[in-house]
Design a protein around this nucleic acid. Structure first.
Lengths: 195, 195
DNA sequence: CCTACCGATCGGTAGG
DNA sequence: CCTACCGATCGGTAGG
């Protein structure tokens, strides 16, 4: 056997530590220790610490983008597509927590060009929500006075905070979480609006 | 004149840089440059970098706590108190953006004891929201099946993301923001629920 | 993947 | 608040 770790192992471990302690809070020696080797040995697999961050963040971005594309292809009403977007987001958070947290919190550690690419990816993702919200207004499902841009921000604010509190295996499973999210977003909290 | 900067100046500048680049992304020399002096000169005002973080974070926590206490004292219905909590939060974000961002994002850089204190402060603040939501259920303003704990998380998720996108001086002023937040939280986005 | 390093930068101190 | 440092740690490289 030649080497016991693949480049992929290194990127995954980096995601774990960047998510936990931040990019600047993680040293290459920390990362080596996580994998059971020396910091300097990592350079057999990668060429710089910043490259690692770029790769982790890009994976997060790609997962969200893919989930959004699938959700937008959901047939039915705008409500159905919004639910698909929310369920897709929950799925990405559960399956790729570390990349998601790094994508959301560590973009500022990237240099200008890479940071702009990440912000552009976030904006594209947000557009998927805006589009579905606007469709819902057109078809009459959502309030006529709804501001798709502002509302997309509100919905995404809730979704982007999931990694801060939601723990799989707790009392609320993924389906229950999606239901609770949709009820809150669709109907709010006031009583006496169903009868 | 003896010194041109007060301890307070140092703490404020630290808040600015910690909010912008993170605790680990800010060096004492960066902080000195921000104030026009050398990194080593800062130690005439403070005793360690970590102390600075503790002080910035504590200020953020105190602002939120104070705002919550005032809001809870608002007479009227639970809806009125919820609006007061939301308006108070918006006020704190607008007036103390740097401390807020440091409080929300840099707590993990604190050592165990200090970090626990911050998490306890966040929990107390969240409790204020839970209490008002539970009151609203009891008085019949909010849905009977509402989960105050989960709903508090949703509302605070939206509020805690404000610093990521809201810019004073833009098209939406603070009052308009509070109105939009309350409409979203109270009524959701579905059409045909008012008539 | 390790050994043996490199120059740069880190938080912080002594003394004025 | 500066000068002149300190030991520790940083990201990274050469050579095997």
């Amino acid at each position: 056997m030649t080497s016991r770790h693949t480049r992929r192992d290194v990127v995954e471990a980096a995601g774990r530590l960047f998510a936990q302690k931040g990019y600047h809070g993680t040293s290459m020696r920390d990362l080596g220790r996580e994998l059971g080797l020396l910091g300097s040995s990592l350079y057999a697999h990668i060429s710089s610490k910043e490259d690692l961050l770029v790769e982790v963040v890009d994976r997060g971005a790609a997962e969200f983008q893919e989930a959004a594309q699938k959700a937008l292809a959901t047939p039915g009403s705008a409500v159905d597509r919004l639910r698909a977007l929310v369920a897709g987001h929950v799925g990405v958070v559960l399956d790729h927590m570390d990349e998601v947290r790094t994508f959301l919190n560590e973009a500022r550690a990237l240099d200008g060009g890479h940071r702009e690419r990440v912000l552009a990816a976030r904006d594209r993702y947000e557009q998927a929500f805006r589009r579905v919200l606007a469709e819902g207004v057109e078809e009459g499902s959502f309030r006529a006075d709804l501001d798709p841009k502002l509302t997309a921000i509100f919905v995404l604010s809730i979704l982007n905070a999931l990694d801060r509190w939601y723990r799989p295996g707790g009392p609320l499973d993924a389906d229950g979480l999606v239901d609770a999210l949709m009820e809150f977003v669709l109907s709010g909290i006031l009583a006496g609006r169903r009868e």
